[in-house]
Amino acid sequence: MAAKQEQVKVLGKWPSPFSNRVELALKLKGISYVYSEQDLSNKSLELLSSNPVHKMVPVLIHNGIPISESLVIVEYIDETWKSNPFLPPHPFHRASARFWSKVVDDKCLPALWNAIWCDEKGREKAVEEAMEALKILENEIGDRRFFGGDEIGLVDISANFVGYWVDILQGIAGLQLLASEKFPKLYKWSQEFKTHPIVKQALPPREELFAFFKSRTA
């Protein structure tokens, strides 16, 4: 008897690094999926029923069951499909990866986003906080190829905004946050990350992403 075919669907928004985390995780696992672009100004019934609490993307729908929140989804993907694991086997190292993923979300992303989009009045302080956040990641990556070691892991997927979006957005804002002379180890990681053959397939086109965010400054 033939095995039942998995049904995997992603509700997302193409410029969103959070949606991209989910697509990246699925591609790294080699899982086929259907992608549904969502209009967040006119939310679909599917999105509202799949994520009734936050009513936001991304949502993974696996065999009819919805899972929300990007990091929760990435861990779900890792636990459901065992090949190419994102988390290490030892409990301490797994806890450490989860901790650093939270640091990325709770400390680094807000600081970087604020530095890029804040007004001139608060720019100096915001940039200082963004640089502090990048320094934390610089110290953590050390001399490893990826945060997960030789292969991409949970923290690398979590830090996709740092690895790809920051370079584009800092150009729009006229800033230089992540630069090789300031953060050589983290910059090297960002190059390894965005040129990884599978990651490269999963990332939105640079020119389109630049145009999308540039239009927000008009």
Rank of each mutant, 00 (worst) to 15 (best):
D156L: 08
Y164G: 06
H93M: 11
G149T: 04
S16Y: 13
L28F: 10
F86H: 05
L154V: 00
V57F: 03
V162H: 01
L175H: 03
E124N: 15
K214N: 11
V10Y: 08
A111G: 10
Q7R: 14
S19A: 15
Q38R: 06
E192L: 13
E192G: 01
R144T: 13
Y187L: 07
V8R: 10
S41R: 14
F193G: 02
S19R: 06
E6C: 04
V59A: 08
E124L: 13
L24S: 13
F183E: 06
I116P: 04
V199K: 04
K102V: 13
S19I: 01
G148H: 07
R94L: 00
Q191D: 06
F213S: 00
K214L: 11
E75V: 06
I61M: 10
L209S: 14
V166E: 01
A95K: 04
L24K: 05
F99I: 07
F213N: 01
D119Y: 07
L26W: 13
L209T: 15
E132D: 15
E132N: 15
I168V: 15
S68Y: 10
P17C: 13
D105T: 05
S190R: 07
W14N: 01
K13P: 00
M56Y: 00
I136F: 11
H62M: 11
S19Y: 03
Y164L: 09
M56V: 11
K214E: 11
V103C: 14
L47T: 04
L203H: 13
Q7N: 14
E124S: 15
M1I: 09
P52A: 10
A159G: 03
A2S: 15
G149N: 11
L154Q: 02
G148F: 12
L26P: 13
E6P: 02
K82C: 12
P197N: 12
R98E: 01
V74F: 06
F193D: 03
E128F: 13
S158M: 04
L186K: 09
E23C: 08
I136K: 09
F161W: 10
G122S: 14
E129H: 09
L178M: 02
L186T: 07
L177F: 00
W189G: 01
A3Y: 04
P205M: 02
S68G: 14
V57S: 06
R21W: 05
Q201N: 09
K29G: 12
G30Q: 12
L47A: 05
A173M: 05
D106S: 12
V74G: 08
E140D: 03
F161H: 09
I198L: 13
K194T: 03
G148P: 08
Q191M: 11
N139M: 14
F161V: 07
W189R: 02
L11R: 02
I116H: 07
W113H: 06
L134S: 10
D39M: 05
T80C: 06
A218E: 15
N160E: 01
S44C: 07
I141P: 08
V22H: 02
I136E: 12
L40V: 09
G163N: 04
E75S: 08
S101R: 02
P110Y: 09
K82N: 14
S19D: 06
G163A: 12
K29F: 11
V53G: 07
G174K: 06
G174E: 00
R123H: 12
I157C: 04
S215K: 15
V10R: 04
A95N: 03
